[in-house]
Structure formats: C-alpha cells, structure tokens
C-alpha cells in the first residue's frame, strides 16, 4: 500500500515534469504526434503505479524515451517545413469567401452540423459572413469574418490610442515580487511609501499591480482570508 503511494507520487511528479518540458503548446493544442505521446505516457504511467510487482523503471524509461522522441520530433518539425507538413499536416480551408468547400469538408470528415456548431460558438450564424474558415493542424477552427462583419476597431475610426503596457504585479498574496518591482523601474522604498500612505503592510495586500500610467491598484486582503 505504501509502495503504491510512493510510486504514484514519483510517477505523477515525473509526468508533470515531462509535460512541462514538452512545452506550453502541449497543454493548449496538441499536434497528432504530441497527442500520441501524451496518450502513451498516460498509459505507461498507470501500469507501474498500480502494479507494484512491475519495476518502476519499466515505466520511467519508456516515458523518458517518449519525451526524447517528442523533443526530437519537435526540433525536426521546427527546422524542416517538409517534415512539418508530413508530421503535423497542413491547415485546410473549409469556407472560402462565404462558400463551403465540400470536398475539403469530406476529406476532413466533418459534417455540416459540426461546422455550423463551431461557427455558432464563434458568434457567427450566417456562413456568408465568413471570409475564411480554416481548420488548423491542431484541430481548432479559426474563422475570419468578412471585412464588413468584423468588429469596429479604433483604427477603423482613425482614433489614436495611448500605449497600454502590461501591468506589473508588485504584491501577490502578501508577497512582494522584487523582479517585477525592478522591471517597473521602482524600488522597495517607493512601494513601502505607497503602502504607508494607505496605512498598509505587504501582508495586508491580496494583490497590488502597477499599470503603464504609473497608477498603483491595491486590493486589500479581507480578514479571515489569510
């Protein structure tokens, strides 16, 4: 029982590390070869976890091998466009200028109901409003509406907008983020002064962020939430 517990912790940690090394893309959108690796890792991880008569290494070594295979294939697909097209496939244009490409739809084995459902999920109810609908290699459908149907942007109205940088989180859950403080060009003295003006200590703050205009937004941690 204790063996299963420890083996489960070891394998779980290893799989988390492996998925982390595989990259962020892994979590969001899987390429076919990445999906295969994820499925195989899941299967390999469960066998030595539940069966203590099997050596743990018999699960760990294939997982490490799959990680290496995945990394090698990622590197190759990054470098070679030909191999990328072969391994990952290429995007398919499903709708072009408001017209469904039925051949491509059949080739991808997508029925009209699925296509309409996907379009509705992107707030498009009329196929004629679509300039392009592209089925990406990861399986998601990206829709580009016709120019007349796109949402209005400030550029369309010739309106100048100020630069909006990314706000820096300076305090999170009572802990000061010194790296962000340096990136924002501020120091601890400045932060202490800002907090002192509001009669606060860092531990009283749930989140404090500094936007590009230099305005510090502070949300105080409520009592009982510590």
């Amino acid at each position: 029982m204790l063996l299963s517990l420890i083996r489960a912790f070891i394998i779980y940690t290893l799989v988390v590390v492996v998925m982390r090394i595989m990259g962020k893309r892994q979590v969001a959108q899987l390429q076919p070869f990445e999906l295969v690796i994820a499925l195989m890792i899941a299967d390999l991880a469960t066998i030595p976890m539940e069966d203590t008569s099997k050596p743990l290494l018999s699960g760990l070594i294939p997982i490490a091998a799959l990680l290496l295979a995945g990394l090698i294939l990622s590197y190759i697909t990054l470098k070679s466009e030909r191999i990328r097209a072969f391994v990952c496939g290429s995007p398919s244009i499903i709708i072009e200028n408001g017209r469904i490409n039925l051949d491509e739809l059949k080739k991808q084995r997508i029925n009209l109901n699925d296509l309409l459902e996907q379009l509705r999920s992107k707030d498009i109810s009329n196929i004629s409003d679509v300039e392009f609908a592209i089925l990406e290699t990861g399986g998601q459908l990206n829709v580009i509406p016709k120019s007349q149907k796109r949402p209005l942007t400030p550029k369309d109205l010739n309106i100048q907008t100020p630069y909006e940088g990314i706000p820096y989180t300076l305090i999170m859950d009572g802990h000061i983020h010194h790296k962000n403080l340096t990136k924002a060009g501020k120091d601890i003295k400045w932060l202490s002064k800002q907090l002192a003006e509001k009669n606060l200590q860092p531990r009283d703050v749930l989140i404090a962020s500094l936007d590009s205009n230099g305005s510090l937004e502070i949300q105080i941690r409520e009592r009982g939430n510590k």
Binding site: L2, L3, L56
Partner: peptide, 11 residues
Amino acid sequence: ARERLTLSNIF
C-alpha cells in the same frame, strides 16, 4: 518482503 518499504521495492 514485497510489501516492505525499500528502495529496491520502490524502483
């Protein structure tokens, strides 16, 4: 012996 918490049993 198989239930015992040892390194050889874990790995």
